[in-house]
Amino acid sequence: MSGNPAKSLKMNQADDAARFSIRCNDLSVQFANNFVAVDHVQLDIEAGHISVLIGPSGCGKTTILRLIAGLQTPSTGNVDLRPNSTAGDGQIAFVFQQPSLLPWRTAMENVILPLELLGRGDAKDRHNQAMQTLASVDLADSHDRLPHQLSGGMKMRVSLARALVTEPSVLLLDEPFAALDDMLRSQLGELLLRLWQERLFTTVMVTHNIAEACVMAHQIHVMREGQIEQSIENPLPWPRSETLRRRPEFGDFYGRVGDALRDDA
């Protein structure tokens, strides 16, 4: 099975309408010190796809995520989300490089937080929703633990659950597994793929890890100095899992992306 997994997973029209496409039109960001973080970027991300931004540090990957999230105002251009999303409606979720949990709140309370901020449902609904989401990241048993009582991987899963609890249409991930060891990274990558295959949220992920990009992405956008230098379609078949890494075509594609990055360098 290859190509668009949305088709292969037999999504119906209502589901299609609930997913967002993202179009970045001539997007630029220039900071007060004249540093150009993003330079006239044109980027189209199909609804229900996973796009990965990869490139050297400081090339503008995170700034693009922040622009899509509405956390950064562009100097020129705009981000077009379809259907329309307004700031603070919970349709866009963000997973940061660090888990960034509130240390005084339990895992459950951290996951409930977005629902409370959005004013969604009553206390019981929120609790049920948060519990279900925690269960989806295999953390139901740890719901009452404070962040300092959780391991690094567990904290990251709470962070992921917090992002997913609002059932977002767009998930933005900023090097979410960068601080984890290879084993955890691989497990969480697998978990993210499973959750995506269940929910098909449009995903934009920043990573420095070529293998992670090859496993996750439909398209890999290679960035350099604020621009997208190359967009590469990922031909690897769906559904995917970490076992994909053992297939010979994975090695070929890995090499291709690596070459693209080296060309940039």
């Binding site: 866009i92 979720a93 509130l102 977005p114």
Partner: peptide
């Protein structure tokens, strides 16, 4: 990050 998270959810 937490400030951004709160802003993202309209706080």
């Amino acid at each position: 990050d937490l400030n951004d998270l709160f802003r993202l959810y309209g706080a």
